[in-house]
Simulated scan of single mutants.
Amino acid sequence: MDRFIYLTFDGLSRGAVYAAFALALVLIWRAARIVNFAQGAMAIATVYAGYSVSTATGSYWLGFAVAIIGGLVLGAAVERVVMRFVDHSSPLNGVVVALGLVLIIQGVLGMIYGDDYKPAAAPFSRDGFEVGGVALLSRYDLFVFAAVGAVVVLLSLLFRGTSTGLRMRAAAFAPDVSRLLGVPVGGMLTLGWALAAATGSLAGMLVIPTELGLHPNAMDLLFISAFTAAVVGGLDSPIGAVVGGVIVGLLLSYVSGYMGATVAPMAVLILLVVVLLGRPDGLFARSKARTA
């Protein structure tokens, strides 16, 4: 029972990070109807920048701020310079360009920083508080929950309580009508990419201290887990991304704890296949009106 409790809290901590990264994928999907396969590579690029600043200055929080701001800038730049000129007549065009970005970003990072794993320190202790002899959440886990919770609240307020959020939603779902109403669709699209990249950078900064460390490919497995979380919840649902992240985090924790870490990636892929076959629009997808 003690092991089950420990694995549950560990899964919730993992799930919070997956939820943040899944939110980034959902933001891009809602803004541009594209699954951004370059999200992980973009995130690790900003994480490298953040930890470079932290190493040079000795301040983790300055590096943390640089990573988030770098995400905003990189996301906006990718949309303005690259994705805006992609022919969207076929959804595969955006996928191919995003995969090309992955290779470019990872190649550049490898040339600059090398292919060895670099240690990444956490700002708080990762030693769990013991209750009844069972190690539960650590100070770092609490920081992860607080950071992801703040992002969820801020994004909810943005989309539901501000005119900017309303314009972003209108630009995503009815761009032609929005242009006629004076909504700057291009600017809203850029803002969506910037927010998504910043959210991905946050997820990267949160997960890297819990993994092997910094590496150009460090976010690849996280992307698979986060993509599964987004699909489980529904690519159109921010709440679904959070719930999907928790589900994937718990699944990985239980499978790793009881069956071994090598089986965990397979469990995620099986979950992805099951959801795609049974409910491809996700658990929180809105019902569609019949057209025939």
Rank of each mutant, 00 (worst) to 15 (best):
I208V: 15
P216W: 02
D141W: 05
G110N: 12
P119C: 10
V183C: 03
V243N: 00
V243A: 14
G200C: 04
N36E: 06
L109A: 13
G200V: 07
P265A: 13
G133M: 09
V273Y: 09
L180D: 09
V26R: 02
M188Q: 11
A264Y: 01
V35H: 05
Y51A: 07
S156M: 04
L277P: 00
E130P: 00
F143D: 02
S13A: 15
A229I: 00
A203D: 06
I34W: 02
G240A: 06
L25N: 00
L277W: 11
T162K: 09
M205F: 08
V185C: 09
S54W: 07
V95M: 14
L137C: 01
A147C: 14
R139T: 06
M188T: 11
S54P: 00
S52D: 09
F173S: 13
F21V: 14
L276M: 13
L136V: 14
T57D: 02
I5Q: 10
M83V: 11
G213C: 12
L195A: 07
G244V: 02
V153L: 15
M266E: 00
G107I: 10
A147R: 02
G182C: 12
F37G: 08
F21Y: 11
F64T: 03
A38N: 10
T210E: 15
G200P: 05
V185H: 09
A24Q: 04
A41I: 08
L23F: 08
F159G: 03
N93Y: 12
K118A: 11
S225I: 00
L25A: 03
L272Y: 02
F173Y: 12
D115M: 14
A77N: 02
A241L: 06
L137P: 03
T162Q: 05
L221Y: 04
R30K: 15
L269P: 00
L158E: 03
A241H: 04
Y140W: 06
A172Y: 01
D116V: 11
L23P: 01
M1P: 12
I208K: 06
S201P: 08
V131L: 14
T55M: 13
A121E: 14
A38M: 07
R14K: 13
F64G: 03
M259V: 14
A65L: 15
G240E: 04
A150E: 05
E79A: 07
A289V: 14
A172M: 07
A226N: 10
A264R: 07
F37W: 13
A198R: 07
A171F: 08
P216F: 01
V177N: 10
P265H: 10
G75A: 07
L109S: 08
G11Q: 08
D116P: 00
P91K: 11
L252Q: 14
T190D: 01
F85K: 14
S256H: 03
I105T: 12
V86Y: 04
A261L: 05
V242W: 01
L195V: 09
S237H: 05
S287T: 11
I105G: 01
L99I: 15
A147Q: 05
H88V: 13
G133P: 08
L101N: 08
A122L: 11
V151K: 02
V78F: 08
G244F: 01
V86T: 11
I5M: 14
G278W: 10
